[in-house]
């Protein structure tokens, strides 16, 4: 039973994917225009070719953008949240500032980022940084604030030092929300990254899309789009696994993982 289930799931997925690909193929035959709608086979071939040529460098460039921007954004979000939790003055200033900035989505910053960083790799890095800071900040602060007072009291009663309370009660209790924020961040950051690379960069998967569009190589455009989808999915999957591994005790995570 245990072994069967993933296989059965895979089979269902393969079936649905197969149907989708067949529909796409039939549609492309009907359209009969390789530029308007490349066939799945053409895209697959283009993909294989790209994987040997341009694509690895683009993937690497995008992952560098993501790594730098997301790392810095997550660090800032976490740091600000902890600062706000500890200091009332910081909270009174940072909280409204974040509330003011949050509705201005990352994408609205693209032109300003282009002015300051120029077309190049600074734009996607800055956008990812900006996009990922908010969800982590908001969730961490909420997580830290919502820790059950009774748990803290219980730890104190058992003789825990304030420091131990933070490391062994507050942080673990906040962890599910922090990680949920991290996943949310990654989704937003991924979309912001593609938008930034499309409009203001000279490297990365998003930039590559427009590059091939210049040549009307739609099979290659499509291959890059699919690559974006696959990597977005894999990154989310990785974070979901991490989430499940780090918060095994939480009933929510278990329900979601099941």
């Amino acid at each position: 039973m245990r072994v069967m289930r993933p296989i059965a799931r895979l089979a269902e997925f393969a079936l649905a994917l197969g149907i989708l690909v067949i529909l796409w193929h039939l549609l492309s035959v009907r359209v009969a225009n390789a530029t308007l709608l490349p066939s799945p086979l053409a895209v697959a071939l283009a993909w294989v070719e790209l994987l040997r040529t341009d694509l690895p460098a683009d993937i690497a460039a995008s992952l560098v953008h993501l790594g730098v921007g997301y790392g810095a954004g997550a660090a800032l979000g976490l740091a600000l949240a902890i600062l706000c939790a500890r200091s009332a003055v910081a909270d009174a200033i940072v909280d409204p500032a974040m509330e003011l900035l949050r509705p201005i989505g990352a994408i609205a910053w693209i032109p300003i980022a282009i002015v300051f960083f120029g077309i190049g790799r600074g734009v996607p890095m800055f956008l990812i940084f900006y996009a990922s800071a908010f969800p982590i900040f908001v969730n961490t602060l909420a997580g830290v604030r919502e820790v059950d007072r009774n748990l803290i009291a219980a730890a104190r009663m058992l003789g825990a030092s304030p420091r131990l309370v933070v490391t062994h009660v507050v942080l673990p209790a906040a962890m599910p929300l922090v990680l949920a924020g991290a996943r949310l961040s990654l989704g937003v950051a991924w979309a912001a990254m593609v938008a930034a690379e499309l409009t203001g960069a000279d490297a990365g998967l998003g930039w590559r899309i427009f590059w091939y569009q210049e040549f009307f190589a739609m099979d290659k455009v499509m291959a890059v789009i699919l690559t974006i989808g696959v990597f977005g999915y894999l990154l989310d999957l990785a974070l979901r696994r991490l989430q499940a591994a780090l918060t095994r005790w939480s009933a929510d995570t278990r329900a979601e993982a099941a």
Binding site: V224, I225, I228
Partner: peptide, 11 residues
């Protein structure tokens, strides 16, 4: 869903 919507712009 994992495909950033903006990636579809050329198509």
């Amino acid at each position: 869903r994992a495909i950033a919507p903006i990636a579809w712009i050329p198509l």
